[in-house]
Design a protein around this nucleic acid. Structure first.
Lengths: 128, 128
DNA sequence: AAGTTAATAGTAATAGTTACTGTTATGTTT
DNA sequence: AAACATAACAGTAACTATTACTATTAACTT
C-alpha cells in the first residue's frame, strides 16, 4: 500500500492563508465567504474538505470536534475526558475552578461557565 | 409583564429522569430513544424543547453550547474565552498544560488534546 | 364546569456538514 | 513536450442535528 500523495492546490493554500490571517476563530462559512473574495467560484465542499485536511496535517486547529450538543445530569463541578477510541465520556475532577475567578478579575471578564474537555485514549482501550 | 408560568409536564419530568439516570453524557437523539421506551409516542421536538428548558432552569448541563465547528490558525498552546454577548473569541493563556500530563499518568489515560473554553462577558460588553 | 393557554405530537423547514459526479489540473513517465 | 494517472475541483444532492409551525391536548385558574 503506497502512501497517498498530497498534491499542491491553490485553493488549499488560499484557505490556509485566510485562516491564518485572522483571530476571529472562524467557522467554515466565514472561511468560505472570505476565500470567495480571492477565488470567486470556489465551492463550499472544497472549503470543508481542505479545512479537514489542514486539521489532519496539523496546520490549523479544530476547536470543537463533535458538532453536536451533549447533556449531563450531573450539575456539580467536574470536567470531562472523552475517549476518541470508544467514544465514552468520563467525568473527571481535574481543575479547581477558583483559578478561573482570579483570572476573570485580572482581565475584567465575567465568567459564566467553564468547559474543560480532554480527549485521548482511556485505560480500557489502551489495554485491549 | 407577568412572569411566564411553567406548567408541570409528565414528558419533561421523564426526560429529566432519563438524563439523570445515566453517565453517558447523551445527545438529544439518545434521550429521545430512551424516553420513547417510557412514553412511546413522545415527539423529537418535545425532547429538544424540554432539554433546552431543563438547561435554562439549571437542572441539567449543556456540554457544548455552539453546535458548530470553529477553526484556529494559531496552533500554539492557548485556551479560549468566548463572550456570550458579542460572540467574540479571545485567545487566553490560562493553564499550564503540564498538569494534564501528570493527571493522565495517574489515571492511565493517554491525552491527545485539551480544549478549555470559558464563556462569559468580556470587558468591552461589560463597559457598554 | 368553563375558560385560558402552556405543552404536546406530528410534520415541515432550516443550517451545518458530507457524499457524489463529471471535469480540471498537478505531478509523473515516457 | 505529449500522454498518462489521479488528486483536487465545482456544482449539486443528500444527510443529520436542530428549530419552527400548526392543530390538538392537558394543566392550572376562576
Amino acid at each position: 500500500m503506497e502512501p497517498i500523495k498530497q498534491r499542491y492546490s491553490h485553493q488549499r493554500e488560499t484557505i490556509l492563508q485566510v485562516v491564518q490571517s485572522t483571530l476571529v476563530h472562524p467557522n467554515a462559512d466565514w472561511v468560505y465567504k472570505e476565500t470567495r473574495k480571492i477565488i470567486p467560484n470556489i465551492s463550499l465542499g472544497t472549503v470543508y474538505r481542505n479545512l479537514n485536511q489542514l486539521v489532519e496535517s496539523g496546520r490549523i486547529l479544530k476547536l470543537k470536534d463533535e458538532a453536536m450538543v451533549r447533556y449531563d445530569g450531573n450539575t456539580g463541578q467536574h470536567d470531562h475526558f472523552r475517549c476518541s477510541k470508544c467514544g465514552k465520556w468520563y467525568d473527571v475532577e481535574l481543575i479547581d475552578q477558583s483559578i478561573f475567578k482570579s483570572f476573570a478579575e485580572k482581565h475584567d471578564f465575567r465568567i459564566e461557565s467553564f468547559n474543560l474537555e480532554l480527549e485521548g485514549t482511556c485505560k480500557n482501550c489502551l489495554d485491549s
